[in-house]
Design a protein around this nucleic acid. Sequence first.
DNA 1: TAAATTTCCATGATATCCCATAATAAGGCA
DNA 2: TGCCTTATTATGGGATATCATGGAAATTTA
Lengths: 165, 165
Amino acid sequence: MIRRFRGESLHKVDTKGRVSVPAAFRRVLEEGDPDFSGSSSPNFVIVYGGVRGICLEGYTISSITKVDKLISRLPRFSRDREILERFINTQSTYMQLDETGRIVLSTRLKEKIGIKDEAIFAGMGEKFQIWEPNNYQNELDALDISFNSLSEDENPFLKLDQLQD
Amino acid sequence: MIRRFRGESLHKVDTKGRVSVPAAFRRVLEEGDPDFSGSSSPNFVIVYGGVRGICLEGYTISSITKVDKLISRLPRFSRDREILERFINTQSTYMQLDETGRIVLSTRLKEKIGIKDEAIFAGMGEKFQIWEPNNYQNELDALDISFNSLSEDENPFLKLDQLQD
DNA sequence: TAAATTTCCATGATATCCCATAATAAGGCA
DNA sequence: TGCCTTATTATGGGATATCATGGAAATTTA
């Protein structure tokens, strides 16, 4: 089974910026790090310049590699490529879990997304997100509203079945 | 024969949140988990953000994988994809049956659907649902009412045969 | 050397495993 | 057909491991 990031959970952020990464996510990060050995802790990547910059996004090494390869297909000096590299490469950083499954969020990263002493982790399949709880709730509410205002043929659930296998 | 989830049954939820999954459903979960070996217990996925969020929905690995693959076809950062991942990946969790055929419902999951010490399992073909008994009865009643108010050409039983394969 | 990181240890809470038992269903046999 | 034996199922309790979290010690950095 190819395990994906699933589920959401709330974690404390202590005074040093340490947060536990949900245990279920750790398994995914381990499987997604080709160099992970069992003795060490998995590496992964956090992108903070995200599409909307309001949350952090964590990628396994293998899924960020996929994204990197897609970017590499764009013409070397194109504007598009430059933009994407700025967001995905410049505004990102390698991370490593510590022995107890935590990472530390630097002051800079915490400021980026407005986190104080709690953080929500949200599984998004090939990546996961880290949110400040209030912002997360707002996001859910906004999603709900925009979802409910969709017409029948705009409903992404219904569009799914129209894609062919 | 492709076995589907059929039937309904009532089970105790103990103080630790443990519930037996109906034996008939276990067979379907086993068949739907490509990694199931006979020595282990099958994995599956519970989605709690469901369309109406009032019950839990259980999917076999192979049927949730179908959904995941469809989602992965959407452009990586599109709004549609984000909405779907939010509902289907974020609001779901992997589960594994234990040796005796039980799962444990976390406090969070129990709260989501208002379960105390009993749960109803309802087979729905490709998925099954878990309900708080009273809510389940209300759902049945509501279904009855709305069904009886349908005109002849709105009757889904009659529409069924008009679909082509 | 003060401040900030990182490493190491400690603990309560939660989840998992292992064993036990009662209830139900399935099967065999006279 | 009725009864006895044997699996399977549903449920409970206690022991054990994992997880989330905090603080102190050691190390680095400025």
